[in-house]
Amino acid sequence: MHGKGLRGLSVATIVVLVGAFAIAAFYAPLDADQGFRQKIFYLHVPLAIVSLVGFIVGGLLAVQHLRSRASIWDLRSYVAIHISLILGVAVLVTGAIWAKTSWGVWWLWDEPTLVSFLIVFLLYATYTPMRFAIEDPERQARYASVFAIAGGAFVPICFGAVRAQEQEVHPQTFGSGELPGPMWLTFLVSLAGMALLFATLYRFEIETKLTRGRLRALRRRLLDDDAPVQRRSAAPTI
């Protein structure tokens, strides 16, 4: 039975995410320096954290794939990276908007957090083309897993290396210790909402892919249809 619990998860996501934006708009205090434009913080930072964690999770799922060689793990790793990549676009866009409003430019090169995110994003942007370029599904899964593991390890290393430049223009989310309580609370609720959004999208994509695979298998049995599948996605077929 596919899709179990999806409805509950979707409703929870909507409630928490809408709630988070509501308290970000009405409850969280205005930032003394940045005023209203600081509110994008509650969208941008959770997106970035969830997206980066998604990349790392993709790497861990790929480890599981190389261990078990079950293609379901490859599908899970693919979906985690795919969703993170989509969230990554949103991170870059919201980051650019925030940079424009608070620093006056769309992009700032001396900014380690921005630059490392861009590097990680560029690396993962080659994940899908790489999958497309390998015909054999079994080899594609194996190579994608190696890529996902190397990439997953690269994420924290890259952030560490680039951050070593010690430029402190970017508002530091953690370690500054000066975020007042209501802001922290709002931030944590937004983070939870974004994590739920990731989980929901992840589940939806997995279930869709599995259902489509089942449908294809059934149709093949019913119609004796041996025509090769038209592939428009780099996702592994199960």
Partner: peptide
């Protein structure tokens, strides 16, 4: 991969940036 000369540099460059 099919596009080996393209993919090699594309994957390697981000990893090499540090």
């Amino acid at each position: 991969t099919r596009a080996r000369d393209l993919l090699g540099p594309l994957i390697a460059l981000p990893l090499l940036i540090p």
